[in-house]
Design a protein around this nucleic acid. Structure first.
Lengths: 343, 343
DNA sequence: CTGAAAGCGCTTACAG
DNA sequence: CTGAAAGCGCTTACAG
């Protein structure tokens, strides 16, 4: 008897119910479920009809128990909590990954590991096989989690190149250096010569690479290097404001700033406003990310667009491939200069 | 032989390995795992030692298969994607829920259902028993997901009162009306009498309640109601800016504005700046949320603090209680006025 | 192409 | 308090 699942929590139909309904064995139902190989068209059809009638949905626990896979993936954030809030990129990334995984019918488990204790607990959970792989968001160097997971043989894809792990770990990253080069080249093309920079944290690859791109272009253009034009930040708005104040103090003739994130650039704009400098007339300001902060800023920020939608979909693609047995891979995606009002 | 789990993905130890190592039956190991009732201290001790030596971690799939519970919880977001990005409250909530669940060793599955198709797919996934309960973030009315899940008997806790579902569904909310009352009372106490409001979306309980609080206090104070002083927004920064422009056009003598979210209040500040009004001298501005936007704004916003940390922990508490068999419950949490520079 | 059977790792009455 | 046994829902060689 077919029974629709209305009201209450009655026992959901099993493969056994489907088999009875379709007049075949449970093995045949399972074969249909797993790709339909070695199944006659007639049986195939009968099973599909039975699935529809019974409203059958596979019990993933039973499946996982036997396959040894969980058919789920972890999204692991090892940043201290504040960055998660303040940085809009995390949101975009998280959403992109969730959607890309949903397209493969793979649930995402969100894992936060800000403290030592949490890291230990979560590492055990992961290595016990509760997820098939991990999307890792933590660009800081010296993160022990990445190394532990790699050693345990857990498929892993990092967002941004993990410092110190070389190419043993898969990662997907925007071309930070090239993006920085584009921005500084743009500032030079506007006739600016005293170009400052507020860097990101220099224990992250993004921080290091953007600074490297800045230095390269200036050197190639024959512009004199001047360390007074470089201040370091941590991607937070407040650090951008502090950095700009430093730069203004040390190099009052600064006529442009390349800021390693849009959020920091908001802080830079605030500092310039307080100092009475007009943007872009007195000082041109270039950001990085093309986050919501870029358009929310006054004036709207010229910035380097990070392809977050592609970053997330590539992370998922590489992870699923690796779960499927492929070797680790690195993917570098191009950035794009977006011109607005601040330059 | 004890074998540590170094390198590679060797087969993890099972309850059987632990039993052998401890010299007891598998049933006894299971009893220790599940609370240690009906187990002698000696056996208890032997099993715990064996678990430590073998590095055993329970296989949740096997457990779930037999218990019928998944020991996991879904965090379901049915907002269209944009709000997820722009609204910092979502982050705080998501993080709070993840942490509160982690304390109970319950993994969180992140689910996004912005489109009709996604909603259907996810509803099936949930009703098939893949999660034990759902934390629902979707304050818009007419959300069919909440109703469907309720009908299917899935334990459910909403963030904010779900319009139309009455008290059949558990929810946790800040006291929006009372918060609005506090803010408007504060503005009155400063001597302001032409107090405008930019509302939230009026198909959400938060939007409706904050407006109601505003109206109540003005009526109680004997201040004449004036619909020209009310503009509606959708919690976005842009809608705040547009709302303020409307208000300034219709009621140029406005001397204060209560804005239903900090993000909108940022837009209001921008509009006032453009119009040449000083804040708070000419126009006092009060926000709602105490999100990062409140301190990032210039001047920093006086606002109503929503207790997001408590909201998330209460949502988790109520959901776990409901999964444990308790009846639905509504929890209303108090807000707090935070005075800064904008009033 | 298909069915019968074994088994994944665990929990839970059931006897003792 | 403890062990032997059944069974959760599924997949996968194994015969046919």
């Amino acid at each position: 008897m077919t029974m629709s699942n209305t009201g209450g929590r009655r026992k959901p139909p099993t493969i056994h119910d489907v088999a009875r309904e379709a007049g075949v064995s449970r093995g045949t139902v399972s074969r249909v479920l797993n790709g339909g190989h070695y199944v006659s068209p007639a049986a195939q059809e009968a099973v599909n009809a039975a699935i529809r009638r019974t409203g059958y949905v596979v019990n993933r626990h039973a499946r996982s128990l036997i396959t040894g896979r969980s058919d789920s993936v972890g999204f692991l954030l090892t940043e201290p909590q504040e960055r998660f809030f303040e940085d809009p990129n995390f949101n975009v990334l998280l959403r992109g990954c969730t959607q890309a995984l949903a397209a493969h019918d793979v649930p995402l488990l969100l894992m936060l590991a800000g403290t030592q204790d949490e890291r230990r607990r979560i590492t055990r959970y992961i290595t016990a096989g509760h997820v098939d792989g991990v999307l890792l968001v933590s660009s800081h160097s010296g993160d022990p989690v990445a190394e532990e997971l790699r050693e345990a043989g857990v498929p892993l894809v990092a967002c941004g190149k993990p410092i110190g792990l070389g190419s043993k770990v898969s990662y997907v990253a925007a071309d930070d250096r090239d993006g920085a080069r584009d921005m500084v080249t743009h500032l030079l093309s506007l006739g600016r010569r005293r170009i400052g920079m507020v860097t990101g944290p220099l224990d992250t690859p993004g921080g290091v690479e953007r600074l490297a791109g800045y230095r390269e272009v200036l050197a190639e253009a024959g512009v004199e290097a001047d360390d007074r034009l470089i201040a370091s930040g941590d991607y937070s708005r407040a650090s951008g404001e502090a950095g700009a104040e430093q730069l203004l103090g040390r190099a009052p003739d600064m006529d442009a700033v390349f800021v390693a994130s849009d959020l920091m650039a908001q802080g830079v704009l605030a500092a310039l406003r307080k100092a009475g400098r007009r943007v872009p007339e007195d000082v041109a300001v270039g950001g990085f990310d093309d986050s919501p902060a870029a358009t929310a800023a006054t004036p709207a920020l010229t910035t380097i667009r990070q392809p977050w939608d592609r970053i997330s979909s590539e992370m998922v693609r590489v992870l699923l491939a690796q779960i499927g047995g492929e070797d680790p891979a690195a993917v570098i995606l191009p950035t794009e200069l977006v011109r607005r009002e601040s330059t």
